[in-house]
């Protein structure tokens, strides 16, 4: 009999089993999630495009998941180029995210669909660390429809 078998079928009342699937922990830091509220011009267009980028594992946009930390459009002259450059700052739900390259690429392509934008940079940030309370209310509804308990 393995050690695992010794765990009874009914968890003890004080059991901490499945503590790691408790997605309710954590607070949303001030000013998060960023939703693009009040953005105008090319930045507005980028936020709208980002609402179309979905997490590859769940039918919810990267904005509603709370992954986008900032969008700005600046003159690319500083980087020695012409035209306008978009800079999108975002995070990942966890560092080992296997969809990292796909998400970064999708976000970059979305940013480049804005009319005035000639190039886009996507930068990963890990502060504040993402937690589920950074998901928007609409994101929660989508996740609940998808069958997740949030």
């Amino acid at each position: 009999m393995s050690a695992d078998d010794e765990v009874g079928f009914e968890p003890a009342p004080d059991s901490e089993a499945c503590a790691y699937t408790d997605y309710a922990r954590g607070d949303a830091p001030e000013e998060y999630p960023k939703t693009g509220e009040g953005a105008t011009g090319a930045e507005r267009e980028i936020w709208d495009a980002l609402y179309e980028v979905e997490d590859p594992e769940m039918p919810v946009s990267v904005v509603d998941l709370g992954l986008i930390y900032g969008v700005r459009v600046e003159d690319a002259a500083a980087a020695g180029a012409d035209g306008k450059r978009a800079v999108v700052e975002m995070t990942l739900t966890y560092t080992g995210c296997p969809a990292r390259e796909m998400l970064l690429n999708d976000v970059r392509c979305a940013a480049m669909t804005a009319g005035d934008v000639d190039d886009a940079d996507v930068r990963l940030r890990y502060s504040p660390p993402w937690n589920v309370n950074m998901v928007t209310e609409r994101g929660r509804e989508r996740l609940r429809d998808f069958g997740l308990s949030v």
């Binding site: 790691y20 966890y94 560092t95 080992g96 940030r125 890990y126 502060s127 660390p129």
Partner: peptide, 14 residues
């Protein structure tokens, strides 16, 4: 490094 280390610490406890 400061930006990233908190995320790593949180994932290491387990």
């Amino acid at each position: 490094i400061a930006d990233r280390v908190g995320k790593a610490i949180a994932e290491e406890n387990y």
